[in-house]
Amino acid sequence: MNYYIYEHENDVRNSELKQQIHQKLYHIVTEPTQADLIIVLGGDGTMLDAIHELHSYNIPFFGVNCGTLGFLLNAIRSPEEIPHHLEELEYITEPLLQATVTTKDDRVSTIQAINDFVIAKLDRKEWISMKLSKGDKEKAIQGSGLLITSAIGSTGTWANERGLMLPTGNNLIGIMGLSTGPFSTLVTKHDKDISISLESRRPIHLDIDTNRMTVENIKKVDIGLSPKTYQLAFLSKAGTSHFHNKRLELFTKKMAQDF
């Protein structure tokens, strides 16, 4: 089996394990197109960067935790624990977030994200009137904006804002209000798209994956899940339980509100 290694060169965490993997792992290739498995060395942030850059190759990601929490990674101590056959692994398949965006001049575009979308204005002191609807359910709120996250993205900005980390494999979408008064968060299963209508005196924009891309002057966003997916790989001996159960435990301690 061929391996492609993804890491941040300036990340010195657990450098001894990284060095051992480079020295002892056979069949390391220099191009992801030649790989059967992408080995990600680092923390959750490194894994998210790897997914951003390489998910279009449709090759599973196997993370080696060289960081702290490691929600997206495997806890291994030596190169010998890295699998030699894809059949030794269990997989979590995750879809990308998808937004269909309508601007004030009625241009429509469809955009995917790995982590999250943020609806906001340059001056966050000014409120936006927002109407969220899903099927026959609606919520009208006012505030500085919204943070919309995937399960994978909930380890990042969402968690930093004290959102509950979402368990994977459930097609969940999280929506968090930014300075929205009594409205805090909701977590909903994607069985229908969520439509968000926006009104404000000044332009509103949509940030994709922490400013990797921005759409200006928007008036409506329809949020759903893309048919495009990627896979995270985990050791079968541990199963996906380590990753999934940590999230599920945190999530079920205080279930977030749905529509």
Rank of each mutant, 00 (worst) to 15 (best):
E87T: 14
T252P: 00
L206T: 02
N171V: 00
I38L: 12
T188N: 10
A50R: 08
K246E: 12
N217T: 10
I39Q: 05
L132V: 08
Q23K: 12
N171D: 14
F62K: 01
G145M: 11
Q34C: 06
T110A: 03
C66H: 05
T240N: 09
I141S: 06
L186S: 05
I111L: 12
S226A: 11
E249W: 08
N10I: 10
N245C: 02
T33Y: 07
L122S: 09
M130H: 01
H84Y: 05
Q142I: 01
T100Y: 00
F183K: 02
A159H: 12
V187M: 03
P227C: 09
L73D: 09
G177E: 04
V64I: 15
N115Y: 06
L186H: 04
S133K: 06
L250Y: 06
L146V: 03
R124I: 11
I208C: 08
Q98A: 08
I114R: 02
G239C: 05
R77N: 13
I21A: 03
I5G: 03
L164E: 13
H190Y: 13
K219C: 13
Y6W: 14
L250A: 14
T110I: 12
R202Y: 13
Q112Y: 02
D11G: 00
V29C: 14
S197D: 12
L54Y: 15
L86V: 13
L198G: 02
H52I: 05
W158F: 15
Y91N: 02
I194G: 02
P95S: 15
E90N: 13
N211I: 00
P182R: 07
A75M: 09
N245F: 12
I28Y: 00
D222C: 09
N245P: 00
Q98G: 01
I223H: 07
S56K: 14
T229M: 04
S15I: 14
I59N: 09
A120D: 08
W158V: 06
V29G: 07
D207K: 11
S109Y: 04
E31G: 00
I38N: 02
N58H: 15
V40Y: 09
